[in-house]
Design a protein around this nucleic acid. Sequence first.
DNA 1: ACCCTCCTGTCA
DNA 2: TGACAGGAGGGT
Length: 270
Amino acid sequence: MPELPEVETIVRQLGPLVTGRKVASLEIFDQKLDSMDNESVPGRTVLEVRRLGKQIGIHLSGCPRTASALWLCFHLRMTGRLIWDDCCQTQNRKYLRAKLVLDKGELSFYDMRRFGSLKSYHSMAESLPAGLDPLSPEFAPSKLEKMLAHSRQEIKSWLLRQDRLAGLGNIYASEILFAAGINPRRQAGSLNSREINCLHSKIVEVLRLAIENCGTTFADFQDTRGQTGSFQGLLAVYGRQGDPCPKCGKPIVRIVQQQRSTFFCPDDQE
DNA sequence: ACCCTCCTGTCA
DNA sequence: TGACAGGAGGGT
């Protein structure tokens, strides 16, 4: 499920639930996550929960064994879910990959496709060579213009590059380009100043609106409380090939770029 | 700058 | 049976 708005939703919920709690244990059930050193986690206290791009970082204090603080970083990839106190047994236990047990409550990491990851770092920055967060104050039109300059990559593909902007994914890339009226096949470096300003403002607007709506949910439940987002009701083009374009009424078209679907309106996106 | 792959499941 | 799924690292 997770692009920036969904991850932000999880982080906002998780923060108040776990901050100040003490870690009792970290259980790993999937061999793919075995590189995680779960012995070094018990006894630490949760200091904060933060998002970096699409990653979720749980900041842990030092402990008697190790003085230095630690970041537990989750990346949910396609099907990862972090579920707080799964009392309702809403999730299929078969996909339980790890569990962080606190002095009160527990956080379960489910992941059907097992693309997700859990690793520990001494700082969050080292977890990924991440690009700029599009919701950070540093993200200005001039900055976007510099990043786009000379790139011959198609703008849709460029928007998915986490080493440039960290957090956009396949849904919001299509939605943002539709809102900005920019054809997904345009070369990134070919956008003029007017288009870049528009793109910049739509990136921020679409992400903020999606966060206000707790993200997009396709399957049943997603977030830490098993709640669903509601932004799927506001999607203009994603998954809507053949549906009438909200602006002009002509059919939305689906194309494939780098083996991934892109949805757009050929009439409204030049 | 692309294509494949990692997994498991659903749907046409 | 084959296409596709909200992601991204690795190889060419």
